[in-house]
Design a protein around this nucleic acid. Structure first.
Lengths: 137, 137
DNA sequence: TTGCTTGCAAATGATTTGCACTGCT
DNA sequence: AGCAGTGCAAATCATTTGCAAGCAA
């Protein structure tokens, strides 16, 4: 993770820890999960995550209650993906989209770009439902 | 809006007001907007919105900070649609998806249904960027 | 009448901030 | 050295809840 160098952020031990936790996760994490996974104090975790989001290294994923979740921006993680969100417990899992769907989405986004006046940066395709555990429990 | 009859919710003046505000809006509203638009006290607005979400009449849309937004469920509003979210000011606008995209999304969702163990209820396709005002401002 | 609803104020829980201290570069 | 970064505790903000009084069915 060399991402911080070109930005105005020092690569401190705390930030290293926060990024390491996000890097090792296959799903977006809540602040609480980042704190317990990294050992970084809560207030610093909030501050670091906010800075990293601001810098574009991390993205906030809004789940369903229980606070926002965070993951590495796609350019710093392995690949483009989408989210499977449990509307019951709030758990978020990553999944890969089909190339065909992505292509069509890109086309749709281009059309919106032309008509909406929005400066479009990215898209979110979330699928929602109840996860295996919640269905069972 | 006859939606409440079959549910276990009384059609009170407050709920009527809350639903009226949502009905008249072309975009999802924050709790604060619902409160100022309906005159219903904040605590009651929160309670009503939660009940309506529970009953499936209203859906919560997670924007970008500034609290969740709410809109009528698609079966009670005009049509299926998606959201254009401004990552700067949090504004959410509705837009119509292409039928072609919807078809492909449905197919993708079917595939996930088979592999994920999730009981899938619906999908969210959001496009994010900066709105005309924020780009200008 | 009956019990769901309401409104206020107090409680909660997540997130933010002031400030003095620490440690990166 | 110099200033960004840190940690604690206090402050803030959205949201939730207890409880007595009000209203729909």
């Amino acid at each position: 993770m060399q991402a911080l160098a070109p930005l105005e952020l020092r690569l401190t031990g705390n930030r290293r820890s926060v990024l390491a936790v996000l890097e090792q996760s296959s799903r977006p994490l809540t602040v609480e999960e980042v704190v317990s996974g990294s050992g970084v104090p809560t207030s610093t975790a909030y501050r670091n995550l906010a800075e990293l989001v601001e810098a574009g290294v991390v993205v906030r994923v809004s789940g369903v209650g229980g606070g926002d979740r965070h993951e590495l921006a796609e350019q710093f993680s392995q690949h483009h993906h989408h989210h499977l969100v449990c509307t019951d417990c709030g758990m978020v899992t990553d999944f890969d989209p089909s190339p065909q769907l992505e292509k069509l989405i890109d086309r749709e986004v281009d059309a919106l770009l032309a008509t909406s006046g929005f400066e479009i940066t990215h898209h979110v395709f979330d699928v929602r439902g109840r996860c295996r555990d919640c269905v069972a429990g």
